[in-house]
Design a binder for these strands. Sequence first.
DNA 1: CCTCGGTGCTACGATATCGGTAGCGTATAG
DNA 2: CTATACGCTACCGATATCGTAGCACCGAGG
Lengths: 109, 109
Amino acid sequence: MPAARPGRPVRGSRSGRPIMAALDLLGRRWTLRVLWELRDGPQTFRELRARCDELSPTVLNQRLAELREAGVVAHEEGSGYALAPDGEALLEALAPLSAWAANWGRRRG
Amino acid sequence: MPAARPGRPVRGSRSGRPIMAALDLLGRRWTLRVLWELRDGPQTFRELRARCDELSPTVLNQRLAELREAGVVAHEEGSGYALAPDGEALLEALAPLSAWAANWGRRRG
DNA sequence: CCTCGGTGCTACGATATCGGTAGCGTATAG
DNA sequence: CTATACGCTACCGATATCGTAGCACCGAGG
């Protein structure tokens, strides 16, 4: 499966609308989690893997490749993987989700 | 795969923290898209399927079951599937994502 | 009674994706 | 020459998803 990017067809939508590309990109297993775990700063491949419950390196590498291609994550020599500017903005856009989850958990947990 | 819910272990996290349950729930294929397509009001199973590019009924049913169990979606007799109050709130929490995607697409599309 | 169209949904085989383990090639330090 | 850590790949079994067909139910119409 190719990485989802705006301006071209993605899984489940031929429109190329950015929101569809975003929903495709983020709707893959571990993608949201990986982004979430990068919120505290750059991390090595293995650190990231440990934070994500030792997910298989195959999948982690695949997700990181997709996120890099999307310009959301960057691999900096020395420090490891980190959020690119677009990734920082994405994480901010996801902040309300954290608040929602807290309320949701309070009502249903 | 059981549905993700706050307060109990989910895929990739035994903590039971609501945010982890949310990331698990939303990080499954088509979940975000289904929620997104419900933003315009109640829809029947088949309408929803058509909007989601005719995804297989197997998966749609599974996603709807998970979302219902999570209290995000409700099946109302007569009108079809619709967002529950928690679902409305979730969609609002996802609104910044739409704005982010638009900017992202402008820069990279 | 029957058909017809719409509903939500299931069965089932094919395919794609993911998971788990081992280990490679490189680099750096002792 | 170890020893360690790095990013990553190969391999293969397990799981999730896809695509198609079609079931059981209901209400409207004839």
